[in-house]
Design a protein around this nucleic acid. Structure first.
Lengths: 225, 225
DNA sequence: TGATTCTTTATAATATCTTTATTTAATAGA
DNA sequence: TCTATTAAATAAAGATATTATAAAGAATCA
């Protein structure tokens, strides 16, 4: 099971340290940014599973950062703030914040809220095992079987397969896939996608030359069946 | 749009009244229960879109009620509690509570948290499918079916079909179609259109020689039925 | 370091679009 | 109704764009 990644955007080093220690000891992978623009860049180049966003940032109002992130970032964003102000809370929640926690926060409560958010994202697809003909994807175990035989996928191949599997029957554009897997800024690197679709097909298709699962929609993207 | 239903499970009449007034004035339909067993029964017989669950109930610990509800209830449950105790919060969140709000609560904040929870549930997308006899056009999935069988269309064919489908019964002139699909400057390339109408007909018409969907209006353009 | 994975480049294979030629159908005028 | 004329449909070849595959170089991780 790969570690879930959490991005901390906060300007106070001691808060970041506190969070880092607690999150890492709970099995999360942590990345950090000390201001909004750096945080947004990090999130864009490598989308984390959850973002902890401080409101009092030096370069930008955290609520504006929230709005900007929400134009493309779909996972959870928890707001951390010293401001225990109803207006601010309502604004944040109405603009896509997954939760709003006031500082000083209780560490175990925050961890529970993080678990809750991450759980939510995961349980969008209720089924933990997705089955498509000869292919089984076990989201919990992060295991993929082809005709009951466990097959080995790299992280990128796995992410790609899960993205496909959760969007069965739907055409996903190159741009969308690239954004989801590689992050914003990679939308034009279509060749990455071709290479990885190629390797994935070799591993999951009965006949990779005549793919039945990953169908190319020329000029648009791919469709998973 | 039907009203979203919220079930309040709380033993304090004045809290229920306060919530009822505020929720109803915000367009929600409200049902109420004064103890856990009644609340669970109500939820079971007529599942609401969200449950507000008090922890201090006369007949049962609210956290046990939460666990019982979660064995089958999949929508949001927000815990209301006078207990601002970390242990209790962690327990609730880890057992499927969508949020935990301490009493006395700020009404607007609670409303925002309710909106947030309901929004989450809703974001399971509903596809809009246009149906014309044997043809189904799913705009979200970018999928076209002929007699329930997925058919493969090129980008141009698909664009053309969507343009037709969105203008059912209306005569579209050659010029208009060419401008919409190929852009300005192609208005005189009527032959393009003939070729693509031809291939589209082969794919969507029962009998391409006697088209029922794409009707030619000689000298003018085409009409889609 | 060695093995694995990711990124990049080059080239082959396909798919799609455009163009031309030819056949078929529709329309208007006598 | 017949004929001349114009418009539309179809087929197929040529041109272009897109995708697949292999393989080398770079980066990463244990």
């Amino acid at each position: 099971m790969t570690k879930e990644e959490i991005l901390i955007i906060d300007d106070e080093p001691q808060i970041r340290k506190l969070l880092e220690i607690n999150l890492e000891s709970n099995g999360y992978k942590v990345t950090q940014a000390s201001d909004a623009s750096m945080g947004i860049k990090l999130a864009a180049s490598h989308p984390p599973d959850l973002i902890l966003l401080d409101i009092g940032l030096p370069d930008m109002n955290g609520l504006d950062a929230l709005k900007e992130l929400r134009t493309w970032y779909n996972h959870s964003i928890i707001i951390l703030s010293v401001i225990d102000n109803e207006e601010s809370i309502v604004f944040a929640l109405d603009n896509g914040a997954s939760d709003y926690v006031t500082k000083p926060f209780r560490v175990n409560e925050l961890l529970a809220r993080i678990r809750s958010c991450l759980h939510r994202n995961k349980s969008i697809e209720h089924n933990t095992i997705l089955i498509f003909d000869n292919i089984q994807v076990d989201l919990i175990a992060r295991a993929v079987k082809n005709n009951d035989e466990l097959i080995k996928l790299t992280t990128t191949e796995y992410k790609l397969l899960v993205l496909f599997a959760q969007n069965e029957g739907r055409v996903l554009t190159h741009q969308y896939i690239l954004k989801e897997i590689w992050g914003v800024g990679y939308q034009n690197d279509t060749q990455y996608l071709r290479v990885f679709v190629g390797t994935l097909r070799k591993k999951i298709e009965r006949n990779p030359n005549k793919p039945k699962h990953i169908i190319t929609e020329s000029g648009v993207g791919y469709r998973f069946n």
